[in-house]
């Protein structure tokens, strides 16, 4: 069993709810081991706070294996922290040094209002999917799976786009709080597959319209989204979305 001997100083955003203002609070966490995940370090801090009679820090997390997309910490100015292609829950303390000061904030975007502390409301993403992120096929209508051959390259590209976990890091990373990478990943997945063709144009138009309605910003091609995406969703998807959108706008 490893016993930790690192001491970490944290500055953490505390905010009671969406109606009150928040501020950064400072905490010291002792006995941190390098095998701990970043969230386990927060567990230790929260146990410490409970024992001191202070309310623990609220943060979103669930699967803790990098796939559910729930964890969402803005660590030292970067969504999900310093590593490439890694969610907060898969970030381990071996990426930090004894005595480090780490600043932890929630995702910041108008479309993601803070619920409490580090927890934000990302339901805007669900509404974008509801506006067109699907193939309209009712259960029971499917033909045999192998009756629709999909070239491997296309299937692989669709899969890479579909790997998006909907965490919102792209929005948090973007100076405009744009959701283009998220939207483009779903539009690309379905535009690349034969199953998605029937609704291809409507999908692009409707999802972009919903994205605008939710209050996400515009894309100015800085590429911060793809650089910070824990699933390394490619900027090519945004290019494809632009083509899809333009094509649909001209013909619809």
């Amino acid at each position: 069993m490893s016993h930790g001997n690192m001491t970490i100083n944290l500055k953490v955003w505390r905010q009671k709810n969406s109606r009150t203002a928040g501020n950064l609070e400072t905490y010291e966490v002792k006995g941190v081991s390098e095998d701990m995940s970043f969230l386990e370090m927060f567990d230790v801090l929260n146990e410490q706070l409970v024992s001191e009679g202070k309310e623990p820090i609220a943060f979103d997390h669930d699967c803790r294996e990098g796939i559910c997309g729930m964890c969402s910490m803005y660590i030292n100015g970067r969504p999900h922290g310093p590593l490439q292609g890694v969610t907060t829950c898969q970030l381990h303390m071996r990426s930090f040094k004894d005595g480090d000061t780490i600043v932890v904030e929630p995702w910041r975007a108008t479309a993601f209002p803070v619920i409490k502390d580090l927890v934000v409301d990302r339901s805007a993403f669900d509404r974008i999917i509801a506006s067109g992120g699907f193939v309209s096929v009712n259960t029971g209508n499917a033909q045999d799976g192998n009756s629709i051959p999909v070239p491997k390259n296309e299937a692989d590209k669709a899969f890479s786009a579909a790997a998006c976990i909907g965490c919102g890091a792209c929005v948090a990373a973007c100076k405009n709080a744009s959701a283009m990478l998220f939207v483009s990943a779903k539009v690309s997945q379905l535009a690349l597959l034969p199953q998605g063709q029937a609704e291809r144009q409507d999908r692009a138009l409707n999802m972009v319209a919903q994205m605008d309605t939710e209050g996400f910003g515009s894309c100015t091609n800085t590429g911060a989204c793809a650089a910070e995406c824990p699933k390394e969703i490619s900027l090519e998807n945004i290019a494809r979305l632009n083509r899809e959108y333009l094509g649909a706008s001209l013909t619809k």
């Binding site: 699907f134 193939v135 096929v137 259960t139 029971g140 209508n141 499917a142 033909q143 045999d144 799976g145 629709i148 051959p149 999909v150 070239p151 491997k152 299937a155 669709a158 899969f159 579909a162 997945q189 379905l190 597959l193 199953q195 998605g196």
Partner: peptide
Amino acid sequence: DQCVAQGVPFARDY
């Protein structure tokens, strides 16, 4: 069949 129809990108051969 249902999942393929929805656009689930299962692994495929060449």
